[in-house]
Each structure stands twice: as structure tokens, then as C-alpha cells.
């Protein structure tokens, strides 16, 4: 008896050989051509519809990014949109007497908008807004400046109970930048720094404290407070601003 597999293979081969030249279903060719044509047409239509939409979207996104409106469209606030009520109110407030000849616009953490060309973002705790996380923005010297979150940022996160340190920071910020009571602000910054000497906003609090000292005419103390920033002891943090302010304080002293 021969190998059963060989016999079975021969039988199966014969079965298929009998239909080797079979043309199959004549409709198959037509179906293939028809489907190919339809697929090609659908792809072309898809390209005609989708490409303009994609191009419009890209152009819009580019325009929004170039004009600074992208965060707004993404659900946030535009960078040039004021995040603090104080920013608006301070802009309309009459200039206050300058200490030691400083021209400091306290809307910004930098002591003077005219003296320090590149205004940088500062911690901006809202009076009743929880400080959720540290938001860093590049300073003019390239260092990262920690800042408190805005309302939009807070709204985008889960509710957060502010810590005592955060509340102290918010109070100091309010006294300094909203009420412009530099004496009280100085005490508040000291309170914050006493509570959180290594807190996440401590460097900015020290810098603001130095601004308060300068505002109050305590130039020697202000210069001492600014020196670590200007010397780079804090890295690049507020270095340029502190150096320029020290120059001005030196003139006035």
C-alpha cells in the first residue's frame, strides 16, 4: 500500500488540476474594477474635502499662535489679558511718590517698567483664589520665575484648599501690589518668609521684600537684599532686574 499522504495529495492535486484553467466568476473582474474606481473616487473626494479643512485649521492655529490668542481658543487666558484686577486698577492709579528715585510700576514684580525693560510675570495670588501650583515663566535673564496660578489655572484643576503659607503669600501680594501699602507688605513678606523660608515662592518673596525696602527708602537694606540676586547666588533668577535696580539705588544713595 502506498503512502496515504501521497495518495491524498495526488487526489487533491487532481481535483484542482481539473479546474486549473477555470475562469472563475466572470463578475469578479467587473467587481474589482468597479470597486477600484469607487475607492479612487472616494479618496479624491476625501482629499478635496479634508485637505481644505486641515489647511484652514493649520492657518487658524498659526494665526492664533502668532497673535497670542491661542491660549484663549484653547480655553485659557491670553497672555496679554490681565489676570489680576490690580493690574487694571494699578494702571489707572496716579503715580505714587518714589522712594530713592525709583520709578517702579508695582503691577509687575520688577521695580520699574522703565528701568527694567523686560517685564516678567510675578506670583499673582488672587485674594480669594487658591494657589494650586507653581507656574513658572521665563524671566528676562532666562531664569524660571515661579508664579501663583491664575483663576483660569485654578478653575482647570481640582478644588484646592490653600495652605497657611499660600494665604500669607496672597496677603503679602495684596498689600504690596493691590493696596500698595509697602510697610504692611514688608511685614507680610517677612511673615511669609518666616513661615516658609524654603517655600516654593520664597525667592520671589525675598525679591518683593527688597522692592518694599527700596520703596520705603531703606536703601542699604534693599541693596543687601538685592545683592544675592544680582550676584547670581539665586542662579539667574531676577539677576538682571536686581542688577539694574542696584545700579539705580547706588545712584540714589
Amino acid at each position: 500500500m502506498s503512502d496515504p499522504l501521497a495518495r491524498a495529495t495526488r487526489a487533491l492535486r487532481d481535483k484542482y488540476d481539473a479546474t486549473a484553467r477555470d475562469e472563475g466568476d466572470p463578475a469578479t473582474r467587473d467587481r474589482v474594477i468597479e470597486r477600484a474606481v469607487r475607492d479612487g473616487r472616494e479618496r479624491r473626494i476625501g482629499r478635496l474635502v479634508l485637505l481644505p479643512i486641515a489647511a484652514t485649521f493649520v492657518l487658524f492655529a498659526t494665526w492664533a499662535a502668532a497673535t497670542g490668542r491661542l491660549p484663549t481658543f484653547l480655553g485659557g487666558k491670553a497672555p496679554n489679558e490681565p489676570t489680576l484686577p490690580v493690574a487694571t486698577s494699578a494702571a489707572t492709579t496716579a503715580p505714587t511718590p518714589r522712594a530713592s528715585g525709583l520709578v517702579a510700576d508695582e503691577r509687575e514684580p520688577a521695580p520699574s517698567a522703565t528701568e527694567i525693560p523686560a517685564a516678567t510675570e510675578i506670583p499673582t495670588p488672587q485674594a480669594s483664589v487658591a494657589i494650586v501650583h507653581e507656574r513658572a515663566a521665563p524671566s528676562s535673564s532666562g531664569a524660571r520665575v515661579p508664579s501663583a496660578p491664575s483663576v483660569a489655572a485654578a478653575a482647570s484643576h481640582e478644588p484646592h484648599v490653600p495652605s497657611p503659607e499660600d494665604e500669607l503669600y496672597a496677603a503679602a501680594h495684596s498689600a504690596h501690589f493691590e493696596q500698595r501699602d509697602f510697610g504692611r507688605a514688608l511685614a507680610a513678606w517677612d511673615a511669609y518668609l518666616a513661615k516658609a523660608p524654603a517655600g516654593r515662592f520664597a525667592p520671589e518673596a525675598r525679591y518683593n521684600r527688597a522692592l518694599c525696602l527700596a520703596r520705603l527708602g531703606r536703601t542699604v537694606e534693599a541693596k543687601a537684599a538685592l545683592a544675592p540676586f544680582a550676584s547670581g547666588a539665586m542662579g539667574g533668577y531676577r539677576r538682571d532686574e536686581a542688577s539694574k535696580l542696584l545700579e539705580r539705588l547706588g545712584d540714589g544713595n
Binding site: L12, Y16, A20, D22, E23, R29, V32, I33, A36
Partner: peptide, 21 residues
């Protein structure tokens, strides 16, 4: 479209033979 038709005509027997087996 015509090229697909030509390819089908030239090779469908071999393709179908293998497919059936």
C-alpha cells in the same frame, strides 16, 4: 483602471489557482 484590468487578465488564473488550493 485599465492597468488593473490588464493585471487581472494576465494573472487571475494563477492567483485563483493558488487561492483555491
Amino acid at each position: 483602471r485599465a492597468a488593473l484590468g490588464e493585471a487581472f487578465d494576465a494573472h487571475h488564473v494563477a492567483v485563483r489557482g493558488l487561492a483555491r488550493r
